[in-house]
Write a protein that binds this DNA or RNA. Structure first.
Length: 792
RNA sequence: GCUGAUGUGGCGGAAUAGGUAGACGCAAGGGACUUAAAAUCCCUCGGCAGCGAUGCCGUGCCGGUUCAAGUCCGGCCAUCAGCACCA
């Protein structure tokens, strides 16, 4: 037998799969469907990263196994191609972003294809294709129609480096998620999506899906539900201030109010009888200059100013309360005003100590009951909360209230390379949506893609595109020049795969009914509060308007660990620890790379790259190839039937449980046993090849064909089932412990009666030595496993 | 600070339900083959003591439950990730 030449083998089978469209999928009512999905990549100029193949291979293994088990498997792929890096690169190299994108996709596609993933390439989608973004725009129009897309002047995050506004989800540690540039606050008129309308459902429906606990928790924390009460405090000017508190039962301890410096009421008071207006104006101005990062710096000492000449009244105690403004109260959350209870809130306490305000305890911490609290005295926290809420509702000074930290999604970007927002701005009619028949609204060709210094969209300068007639009144109007964020196209792409060429609907209802929901969606942890949350939101909206048949898009979500550099640090060009998958494929082969990426460790955990370990996987495949040299159907003294059977069980279960590393280890153990035995039968080689096929699809096809192990391709074979074998003849190893410590073991027939096991154990020389002069108190017997002798 | 993870040899990592800790792989050391090297094959490989049989210790730390704890309980420590003045 000639040696294992991965180059020719892989090239050959990739061509066959391509030519014969082996993995093309159509709905089939007779088969159970299985929709496997990986996050489609952003085709950057750097090409495929060694981290990409890990999830692709993982779900490829699942898909290939499921196909062999008789499922109708959909495993599609595509390109999330709008976005800033391409645009920036295009600006730098003076090329069109579309050309750059096309080139990057070509390169990526070549690389992905070299891995032998069983994608159905006939369903490839590209978010920058007008036939695709037509439907992204269509969804936007629907959102607009239902009042879920609106334009609003607001204080937004602005990345000074990308010159673009960011969603809250895109600001990480106070800096831009993408470029780590400084983020400042800017008042701008922006398109917003009302994701907050779905906050509760986005929390509740997590119970209906199979996601890792940490993903659920992270989304729940991000949405940040808080339950409490809104209470109105009368002030000396005759106005009232509404505060939100999650601890209404502590109201008797509320000794002052704090308002965000931006609070509306402050402005109106300044027009009236405030004594220290200058001081207050200065404080407001200082606050406005601060970045979010500076403002939320926890280690900073509290600052604030008392509003002299205005005070409030505690509605329960009747006591007068001073009013302050302070930047630790945020304008964007709840009503932007709090009642401060310094005795039971650390921040309020720090503030009270600094400004010398009285601190009044209202909870006995030991007994956990309310004190100094009038009508609530003696009640538990929970009972007090209930009573005070019904009291304030009855007296009409407040009500129960639920708040969320989640903000509406800032949906405008002042950049070129994104989906144009299909809206015309008319001075008479306002924001006028395009007709569905006018979609897609294509991106115009422009000469300059760079945004203006203050974040003006590059589209603003394209007169013949911007200037249009209002679709409603026919008068002169202008197009919206903002584009959509990167996350728009990826919020619904899993639906387009179902029906990628449909120009009447985003996907036909028939296809949606057959394929949805996605059965298994794997992706990165970094998308938990971005893409994953956004797409759940869009899907719920599509469900509400009757486009899709399920309230949740993804039945099961798993996450992969990242591949780190050999030095255990994140792979990056600047660290000089980047491994190029092309080099690995060329030197060791795609099958080896696939095997290695699955064997390197727990799939859900990060793992450092190790070039030496790859050799171990390559060796394993060479040993597999070498099995062809020890084929022998005549010898049959020894059988590995039992071991093969156990491996079937192990591999099948491990693949479904994401334990690819131990599945491979069990195949390695089995091959070691085969070599110990010295030969393999055709039946055994056939079974081994089938088990290995999802992991190493090329080499197994080749061995299958060369040795005529079956008709057709191995990937079309049936997956083996675990057989219940007659085990009455089996032997087991019985472990003998004395006082819980392993002392010896012996091999005996399976299901040997307890009394016989005990007598064998007691007669073992080692055991007798330990028993010498001691008394046997009792024994614990675990069938077919262990006998523990308890002695004095 | 809050939330969620994780802590096992020189390294990556195994260990259904509490039941032989270290599977599998890498690296390392020794040997065979070879003029030599690579490749391949065989042996050793948690620590301490011992020629050895063997014994003791050992899964971040301290305690507990149990015949038996990497696994369960309580309390710490460390690392990672996300959130972070959200009232």
């Amino acid at each position: 037998m000639t040696g294992y030449d991965h180059r020719s083998v892989e090239k050959k089978w990739q061509k066959i799969w391509d030519d014969e469209k082996t993995f093309k999928t159509e709905p089939d009512a007779k088969k159970k469907k299985f929709y496997a999905l990986v996050e489609f990549p952003y085709p950057s100029g750097q090409g495929l990263h060694v981290g990409h193949p890990r999830p692709y291979t993982a779900l490829d293994i699942v898909s290939r196994m499921k196909r062999m088990q008789g499922y109708n498997v959909l495993y599609p792929f595509g390109w999330d191609a709008f976005g800033l890096p391409t645009e920036n690169y295009a600006i730098k190299t003076k090329r069109h972003p579309k050309d750059v994108t096309d080139e990057n996709i070509r390169n990526f596609k070549k690389q992905v294809k070299s891995l032998g993933i069983s994608f159905d390439w006939d369903r490839e989608v590209n978010t920058t294709d007008p036939s695709y973004y037509k439907w992204t725009q269509w969804i936007f129009l629907k959102l607009f129609e239902r009042g879920l897309a609106y334009k609003k002047e607001s204080n937004v995050n602005f990345c000074t480096s990308c010159k673009v506004v960011l969603a809250n989800e895109e600001v990480v540690n106070g800096v831009c998620e993408r470029c780590s540039g400084e983020v400042i606050r800017k008042v701008k008129s922006q398109w917003m999506l009302r994701i907050t309308a779905y906050a509760q459902r986005l929390i509740d429906d997590l119970e209906t899906v199979d996601y890792p606990e940490r993903v659920k928790q992270q989304q729940i924390n991000w949405i940040g539900r808080s339950s409490g009460a809104e209470i109105s405090f009368k002030t000396s000017t005759g106005d009232s201030v509404v505060v939100y508190t999650s601890r209404p039962e502590t109201i008797y301890g509320a000794t002052f109010l704090v308002l965000a410096p931006e609070h509306q009421m402050v402005g109106s008071w300044l027009k009236g009888s405030v004594k220290n207006a200058e001081e207050i104006k200065n404080y407001i101005a200082t606050t406005a200059k601060k970045s979010d990062l500076a403002r939320t710096d926890l280690s900073r000492e509290k600052t604030g100013i008392r509003i002299e000449g205005v005070s409030a009244v505690n509605p329960l105690t009747g006591d007068s309360m001073p009013i302050f403004i302070a930047d630790y109260v945020l304008p964007g959350y709840a009503s932007g005003a709090i009642m401060a209870v310094p005795a039971h809130d650390e921040r309020d306490k720090a503030f009270a100590l600094k400004f010398n305000i009285s601190i009044k305890p209202v909870i006995n911490e030991e007994k956990n009951v309310l004190i100094n609290s009038g009508i609530l005295d003696g009640l538990s926290i929970d009972a007090g909360k209930e009573k005070i809420i019904s009291y304030i509702e009855e007296k009409e000074i407040g009500r129960k209230k639920i708040n969320y930290k989640l903000r509406d999604w800032v949906f405008s970007r002042q950049r070129y390379w994104g989906e144009p927002i299909p809206i015309v701005i008319c001075s008479k009619c306002g924001y006028v949506p395009l007709e569905e028949s006018d979609l897609p609204l294509r991106l115009p060709d422009v000469d300059k893609y760079a945004p203006g210094p203050n974040g003006e969209s590059p589209l603003e300068g394209i007169q013949n595109w911007v200037n249009v007639k209002c679709p409603k009144c026919g008068k002169d109007a202008k197009r919206e020049t903002d584009t959509m964020p990167q996350w728009a196209g990826s919020s619904w792409y899993y639906l387009r795969y179902l029906d990628p060429n449909n120009d009447k609907e985003l996907a036909s209802r028939k296809m949606i009914d057959y394929w949805m929901p996605v059965d298994w969606y794997n992706g990165g942890m970094e998308h938990t509060t971005l893409h994953l949350l956004y797409s759940r939101f869009w899907h719920k909206f599509l469900y509400d308007i009757g486009v899709v048949n399920t309230p949740e898009p993804y039945a099961k979500r798993t996450t992969h660990g990242v591949i780190l550099g050999e030095n255990n640090e994140k792979m990056s060009k600047s660290r000089g620890n980047v491994v190029n998958p092309d080099d690995v494929v060329s030197e060791y082969g795609a099958d080896t790379l696939r095997l290695y990426e699955m064997f390197v460790g727990d799939f859900e955990k990060a793992a450092p790259w190790n070039t030496n370990s790859i050799k171990g996987c390559r060796r394993f495949l060479e040993r597999y190839w070498g099995l062809q040299d020890i084929l022998n159907n005549n010898s049959s003294e020894e059988s590995l039937q039992k071991e093969f059977n156990e491996t079937v069980k192990k591999v099948t279960n491990d693949v479904l449980n994401l334990k690819f590393n131990t599945a491979i280890a069990s195949l390695m153990t089995l091959i070691n046993l085969i070599y110990e035995k010295g030969y393999i039968t055709s039946e055994e080689l056939k079974l081994f090849s089938v088990l290995l096929n999802p992991f190493a699809p090329h080499v197994t096809e080749e061995v299958w064909e060369r040795n005529r192990l079956g008709n057709g391709m191995i990937c079309e074979e049936n997956w083996p089932e675990y057989k219940l074998l007659d085990s009455s003849e089996d032997k087991v190893t019985m472990v003998v412990q004395i006082n819980g410590k392993v002392r010896d073991n012996f091999v005996c027939a399976i299901n040997l009666p307890e009394s016989e096991v005990l007598s064998v154990a007691l007669n073992l020389p080692k055991v007798r030595k330990f028993l010498d002069g001691k008394e046997l108190l009792r024994h614990i017997y675990v069938k077919n496993k262990i006998i523990n002798l308890v002695i004095t």
